[in-house]
């Protein structure tokens, strides 16, 4: 396999698949006392069904902001964005996505099971259905048996897995993850990455994943979006052809290293703009 076959620019891709997220010329400017901050500027991006898209870039490049705009936690100040063909607000009200934050954000007064059933309770599902779904979601993240524990009784990695189970419990097709493993150590992170890939392969969900780790981005993604700060923008979109059932071993392959190299070059180019 040559690099050309593995890596394709998004512009050359045929638009055959269904677009889950469609962003055109999106911008977001925060008005502050020190003048406007251009968090996002002229962002164009399409996330197709079944994609695993990583957003990578230095702090302040707007990757988290972009994810929050998709989730309707921030409002764009310009451009167009649609999720499943509707506005982000509509998509949020349709419960179109599950969001995993940087911190687990589990409610300490609820047991793990009741934390996972929280969205289902808000969606007014029956009690049996809630318990059943929580059980299934906890099984997916290998946390079965911890239903009755409270969050503080679990390790950081387990808490984050519980928060992923919570995002999975209502079975949204789109999963938004904001540096979910950022606070965890390397070994736990590798393990959770593997589990996440398995989950993705099994459920065929669309995943948008923010990270600042190059190996993590390359290992997980079907599409890597490299971003750069001031103003926050996309400077490169890299597609990869690794199979969905990839293992950690691919990190030793030349293709992997080539892509990682290209990501690094992109990040470096973005940085050099500052000077």
């Amino acid at each position: 396999m040559t690099l050309k076959e593995v890596v394709n620019n998004v512009a050359e891709m045929p638009a055959s698949k269904n677009a889950v997220v469609d962003i055109k010329n999106l911008s977001l400017t925060f008005q502050t006392a020190d003048g406007p901050v251009y968090a996002l500027s002229e962002v164009d991006l399409t996330i197709d069904e079944g994609d695993f898209v990583s957003f990578i870039g230095p702090s302040g490049c707007g990757k988290t902001t972009l994810l929050r705009v998709i989730a309707d936690l921030e409002k764009a100040t310009g451009g167009d964005i649609s999720i499943n063909g509707v506005s982000p607000e509509q998509a949020r009200e349709n419960r179109a996505y599950g969001y995993v934050f940087q911190a687990p954000a589990l409610l300490p007064w609820r047991s793990i099971e009741r934390n996972v059933t929280l969205p289902l309770e808000i969606m007014e599902l029956s009690k049996e259905e809630r318990i059943k779904r929580a059980h299934d979601a906890l099984k997916l993240v290998e946390l079965n048996g911890f239903e009755k524990k409270f969050p503080w009784q679990l390790s950081g990695g387990m808490q984050q897995r519980a928060s992923i189970a919570r995002a999975l419990s209502f079975d949204a097709d789109l999963l938004l993850m904001d540096e979910p493993f950022g606070a965890l150590d390397e070994i736990v992170r590798d393990h959770l990455n593997e589990q996440l890939l398995k989950l993705w392969a099994r459920t065929n969900k669309t995943v948008a994943f923010v990270t600042h780790s190059i190996p993590e981005a390359v290992y997980l993604s079907s599409k890597i979006v490299v971003m750069s700060p001031r103003p926050g923008r996309i400077i490169d979109v890299i597609e990869t052809d690794f199979p969905k059932d990839r293992t950690l071993d691919i990190r030793e392959t030349p293709e992997f290293l080539e892509i990682a190299h290209r990501v690094r070059e992109g990040l470096r180019a973005g940085h050099s703009n500052d000077e």
């Binding site: 936690l73 349709n94 934050f101 954000a105 808000i122």
Partner: peptide, 13 residues
């Protein structure tokens, strides 16, 4: 916390 409020917002609570 802000995070928890955002979480509830993502569920359209």
């Amino acid at each position: 916390g802000k995070l928890e409020k955002d979480l509830m917002a993502t569920y359209a609570s």
